[in-house]
């Protein structure tokens, strides 16, 4: 007699991408988030072709100008066009934030899966590791690590990934712990499914959805950390137009011409709000159970 395989009781994580996008855009906050993020991606891809100046050519006689017809947002302390620099900066921000956050998610997913599924001393070790990383405010930890490893784009990505990994590890671990007890996993185990099959086929699809929300929520946090470190001179190095670098250079002349700081700060605020509202709406439409979850804390 053969035993029929247990019906998979995996609740569908999303009803396909299209309906999700539709539900997102139907909410004003979601539409706003999608619009901002789409605009940023477009700028990141096409900025070098559309910016009015190259953002690197200096024009000392026209330094620290306010907005005008030839320089829509004004010029910085070396006479470079601010609009061009800020638009080119989008690419730098995403070049740090996207890989950093994706790496942190993968890292956290692996740690969380192993810790939650294995339990015992493995779990304890992972928890201590995560607690130790989270014993520092993320800016401080990133600052120390970058300072020690040397400021460069790659090191920045690595450091931000390490700093952010515990969050997704925690989320994953918690859902794995809950899943491990559930009847359908037990049934699967009773039917002789191996660990890899259980994790890959049954656990993974159930823990991965919240990570997409973390992705949207953590990108602005990563940008915030990057710009903060670059502002302190410990991140992306001038003359690369990262927003942190523009802020830091603008801060030196802020009493003469606040334009550089003002525009960059506003760009950063808009970006942060865009990604966060996207993440929040995504959370609300994809899984109402999560709506009480702690999001929105960029500093962790």
């Amino acid at each position: 007699m053969t035993i029929a395989p247990a019906p998979d009781r995996v609740p569908p994580t999303s009803a396909g991408l299209r309906p999700l996008l539709g539900r997102l855009v139907r909410r004003p906050a979601g539409a706003f988030g999608v619009a901002v993020v789409a605009a940023l991606l477009l700028v990141a891809v096409f900025a070098p072709h559309v910016v009015p100046y190259d953002g690197a050519t200096q024009d000392i006689p026209n330094r620290l100008q306010g907005p005008s017809g030839s320089h829509l947002l004004g010029t910085d302390g070396l006479g470079r066009d601010l609009l061009s620099r800020i638009l080119l900066g989008v690419r730098i921000e995403l070049a740090v934030a996207l890989p950093a956050v994706c790496t942190s998610l993968v890292l956290g997913l692996l740690l969380g899966l192993v810790a939650g599924y294995r339990g015992g001393w493995v779990d304890n070790a992972v928890v201590v590791f995560m607690d130790t990383i989270q014993a520092f405010p993320s800016v401080v930890l990133a600052l120390v690590l970058v300072a020690v490893l040397g400021p460069s784009l790659t090191n920045l990505v690595i450091v931000v990934a390490i700093t952010f990994a515990p969050q997704s590890a925690r989320v994953t671990r918690a859902s794995v712990l809950a899943l491990r007890q559930s009847p359908f996993i037990e049934a699967e185990r009773a039917l002789g499914a191996g660990t890899l099959r259980i994790i890959g086929v049954h656990v993974l699809p159930n823990v991965i959805a919240p990570l997409f929300i973390l992705l949207a929520m953590n990108i602005p946090s990563a940008i915030t950390v990057e710009a903060g470190l670059s502002f302190l001179g410990m991140g992306v190095q001038p003359p690369t137009p990262s927003w942190g670098v523009i802020l830091s250079e603008g801060f030196a002349d802020v009493y003469e011409a606040p334009w550089a700081v003002l525009w960059t700060a506003l760009a950063l605020v808009l970006t942060t709000i865009g990604f966060t509202t996207l993440g929040e709406t995504l959370r609300d439409v994809s899984d109402p159970r999560l709506s009480g979850a702690k999001g929105l804390r960029y500093d962790r």
Partner: peptide, 14 residues
């Protein structure tokens, strides 16, 4: 939302 998402150093600069 604007307040929550605003990094404190951006608030400081503004």
């Amino acid at each position: 939302i604007g307040f929550i998402t605003m990094p404190s150093y951006i608030a400081a600069l503004l």
